[in-house]
Amino acid sequence: MEHKKFSKLELLKLSLKYSKLNLKCTLEYKFDRFFTTLAVFVREMVSIAVMYLILTRVISIKGWQMNEMFFLYSFLFLSYCIFIFLFTGIRDFDNMVYTGELDRYLIRPLGLLYQVISARVDYCATIGHGAVGVILFLSTYNSVGIDWNFRNIVYYILALLGGVIIQTSLFMVSSCFSFWAVRTTNLRNLIFFNSRRFAGYPISFYPGIVQKMLIFAVPFAFVSYFPSEYFLHKPDLSVFWHGCLYLTPVVGIIMFTLVYIFWRLGLKSYSSSGNSMY
């Protein structure tokens, strides 16, 4: 059979096909998946509940009120929800190496990263996180005083997508280690989910070292804090460079580029060593 390159449209159609099959898998266990989704939702609501309980008591922290804090938090959930919807495979990558699924992708006439990304969709996590994000957003977007004009809407979308790319890159770093048969999943979850939890509060609450970490090492500040400051202009922004407000997509793109180079390196190593540890 003659090999033609796949066109963008064909790839998109194929992705849809994959998502449909994933949906079918999810619906195979409707009952169980429903409760899993509910559990994810409840689990994620814990930090929201704690924030709610504190703020009903103290009204505002460092000038931040409840609706503003929730607006900030909504960035984390919405971008994570999009990340999971599009890139579940990157989260589960170590498992693909472990089970040999990766070898199967390598004998198909499609790009590896494309297949890793398309092959899985975790609908439970998408909906569980997404529901929290949507609830937070809908209950605050009106009351935090944002003029939803064209410019702001464009900014919002770009910031959200930038946040998605940043989180994708963070997950992908850990995936790359799987190519060398080094398991970093536990460590990754620890770093990722804790950082994410911190980023649920304005980073100005934290001592300098944590702020620096959330800007330079695990740049969650660009996922939630800076985008919400763009809209809210709280006084605590003054200690940070103003340009940070616009950097989210840039940070995302730079991170992804670097991680992609790392990924190519890893793939090269994988094809010379196979899935040896497992």
Partner: peptide, 19 residues
Amino acid sequence: RKKNASRIGAVFGQRTQLW
């Protein structure tokens, strides 16, 4: 790899490629 892949098929008895 990609070009060659459309001309070959493979069965790994120990694993499955089915969903």
